[in-house]
């Protein structure tokens, strides 16, 4: 049996989850009432806001493309707790990040840092775009001047005239 961990920070979500749990109960699912763990939040609202902001930029390592703020995984819950611990201990944002990076590597940051190894990652899009623009520029510049439209032959002019019923254009004209 897997334990069910729920974060009930957002009241609406909490209500919904409660309703869903209730439904499960009604249906008679054999799941035992799981341990509901509510994240303790920091008493200082500004610090709590910082914790949430930081958590949004930290990767949940088991779910990989979710932030720890969004994930219900147990590890994400642990990491949220540790982020709050560090903030309560007086760390600034960079120090908290460094604390996690020392253990899990840069991978824990959803936004990769700008450094030697990640230079390609950051610069490739810019390089590709400038390359493509330069290429397009040279290709279009080298294209021969647009050829002036060939004047219509008398036959064609007559046909145009007959189709448009324009008396002025009827009759052969010099070209």
């Amino acid at each position: 049996m897997t334990k069910l961990f729920l974060r009930l920070r957002r009241p609406a979500l909490g209500l919904l989850t409660a309703a869903m749990l209730g439904l499960c109960g009604l249906v008679g699912a054999a799941a035992p009432a799981g341990a509901m763990v509510i994240d303790p939040s920091l008493p200082d609202p500004a610090a709590e806001a910082r914790a949430i902001e930081l958590s949004k930029g930290l990767r949940c390592l088991v779910c990989q493309n979710q932030s720890i703020e969004d994930s219900n995984a147990e590890l994400a819950r642990d990491l949220r707790r540790i982020v709050r611990e560090r903030i309560a201990a007086g760390d600034d944002n960079e120090t908290v990040k460094a604390y996690l990076v020392a253990r899990y590597g840069d991978w824990v940051l959803l936004k990769p840092p700008f450094k030697g190894l990640t230079l390609i990652l950051w610069l490739a899009p810019v390089a590709l775009l400038t390359g493509a623009l330069a290429l397009a520029g040279t290709v279009y510049r080298r294209r021969p001047e647009a050829v002036a439209p060939v004047p219509l032959s008398p036959d064609e002019q007559a046909r145009v005239a007959s189709l448009t019923h324009d008396p002025a254009a009827s009759g052969p004209t010099k070209s």
Binding site: L61, Q64, V101, A102, R103, Y104, G105, D106, W107
Partner: peptide
């Protein structure tokens, strides 16, 4: 293997 995260340790 994207699930194997290189350890900084």
């Amino acid at each position: 293997h994207p699930s194997e995260i290189p350890s900084p340790l």
